[in-house]
């Protein structure tokens, strides 16, 4: 009896998690242009419109074309996410290697320090960065977004790579050194291939979080550098429009594919 009840609850739990998301997907195919909450038939028009095709929607007088801003926002987001994730991966991996493979007095300090950006409320970090950039006279730009996001994404890569380093047997590295390999050779041929899945995982994580970051970016972007989440937030504030459903569904597809690959890789290597 209790077991049944628990199973029923568990199913409700998953409905709670996924129903809202699926609702957005379903309504992105709704043909009703006047009242988006009333279903009036199936259409691909919202998607066709995003990709620049002529649709019935475009002819409507109330329609305001904003696809140019949308493309610009996507471009900015991808530029930022690619730069930030690569940058954070290099620094995060270097720190993880130093802490895991060298014995020095500050190792414990670094381990604690790397936790701080992850538990820091993002609004605090966001405004602190804003004040700092203005005070030192740095203009807000894509560069400040990249720097701002990196300050906390380094931590995420650090944690992911550290976990991998902890699993990696050091005896391979010792054997390599005993057999006469230089430290650089050992690193390139033994350590790096060993931690590569960790770096890849950390990079993917950093990429996704960067693509989705709203708060830090909001404060340090300045005018004219709109990322995708900020663009959508702006659309929401101007009033709910049906095309948001289609944009949201495409974003969903994109993140689920990336996150799915990442989580799949992780589950495979722990087995």
């Amino acid at each position: 009896m209790l077991r049944r009840l628990l199973s029923l609850y568990g199913l409700l739990f998953f409905v709670f998690i996924y129903a809202p998301i699926l609702l957005v997907v379903a309504y992105s195919f709704n043909a009703n242009t006047l009242n988006m909450m009333v279903w009036s038939g199936f259409t691909f028009d919202w998607y066709r419109q995003i990709f620049g095709y002529e649709t019935a929607i475009t002819d409507s007088t109330s329609y305001v074309d904003s696809s140019a801003q949308l493309y610009a926002a996507i471009r900015t987001s991808l530029t930022v996410a690619l730069s930030t994730s690569v940058f954070a991966s290099v620094f995060g991996t270097a720190l993880a290697l130093a802490v895991a493979r060298f014995r020095f007095r500050l190792a414990g300090f670094y381990r604690t320090l790397m936790m701080v950006p992850m538990i820091m409320p993002d609004i605090v970090l966001g405004i602190a960065l804003l004040i700092f950039f203005i005070t030192i006279g740095m203009n807000l730009s894509i560069m400040t977004i990249i720097i701002g996001q990196s300050t906390f994404l380094i931590s995420y890569v650090f944690v992911t790579v550290s976990a991998r380093l902890a699993d990696l047997d050091t005896s391979f590295e010792e054997a390599s050194a005993d057999l006469g390999a230089t430290p650089m050779q050992t690193f390139r041929k033994v350590t790096l291939p060993g931690i590569a899945p960790g770096i890849l995982g950390g990079w993917l994580l950093a990429f996704i979080i960067s693509m989705d970051d709203l708060v830090i970016t909001y404060f340090v972007a300045g005018t004219g550098n709109t990322t995708l989440p900020i663009h959508i937030w702006g659309m929401l504030r101007r009033g709910i429009k049906p095309e948001i459903n289609a944009i949201a569904t495409l974003m969903l597809l994109f993140t689920i594919v990336i996150a799915g690959v990442g989580l799949y890789l992780r589950s495979r290597r722990t087995k």
């Binding site: 998953f14 998690i17 996924y18 809202p20 998301i21 609702l23 957005v24 309504y27 009242n35 909450m37 996704i208 693509m211 989705d212 709203l214 989440p229 959508i232 937030w233 929401l236 709910i240 948001i244 949201a248 974003m251 969903l252 993140t255 689920i256 990336i258 996150a259 799915g260 989580l263 589950s267």
Partner: peptide, 26 residues
């Protein structure tokens, strides 16, 4: 995996979903 997956879905998209559910015509 299923519980973790929504964490990677854009925050603004997840909130938008609740606007659709909760608004007066929702």
């Amino acid at each position: 995996f299923l519980v973790t997956l929504p964490f990677f879905v854009s925050l603004i998209v997840r909130l938008f979903a609740w606007v659709l559910i909760l608004r007066p015509t929702g």
